[in-house]
């Protein structure tokens, strides 16, 4: 059963990332694009977790954690820049 469930979940995640990319490229305002980029970060971290499940290894877990972490930090940094014109005051 898992032999077809895992590819199906991969397909769902890829479709989700394509929708994010569409949103990232076509939206007109900056916060909209940051939101799309943030979602893209989380989805790519989900894709890496699924890769770890597929390959039956825990090696990729740290990569997923790091990507989620960097996504959060970069979202907050860019938003802070939009709000104040500066990141560290």
């Amino acid at each position: 059963m898992l032999s077809w469930v895992i590819p199906l979940v991969f397909a769902m995640l890829c479709l989700a990332m394509m929708l994010n990319l569409w949103s990232l490229c076509t939206r007109s305002s900056l916060p909209d694009r940051i939101l799309a980029l943030d979602t893209l970060y989380i989805n790519s971290s989900a894709l890496i977790i699924m890769f770890g499940v597929w390959k039956v290894t825990a090696l990729y877990f740290e990569a997923a954690l790091l990507i989620a972490l960097l996504g959060f930090v970069s979202t907050v940094a860019v938003c802070k820049y939009l709000l104040r014109g500066d990141i560290i005051e």
Binding site: M1, L2, V5, I6, L8, V9, M12, L13, L15, A16, M17, L19, N20, W22, S23, L35, A36, T39, I42, N43, A46, M50, V53
Partner: peptide, 26 residues
């Protein structure tokens, strides 16, 4: 089989909600 069923439920549910989030974004 029952264990595969539980794991598949969580994986498919997770994938479906992530897809739903991106769909809502569009």
């Amino acid at each position: 089989f029952w264990f595969e069923l539980i794991v598949s439920f969580f994986l498919l549910g997770g994938g479906a909600f992530i897809l739903l989030g991106s769909f809502g974004l569009v």
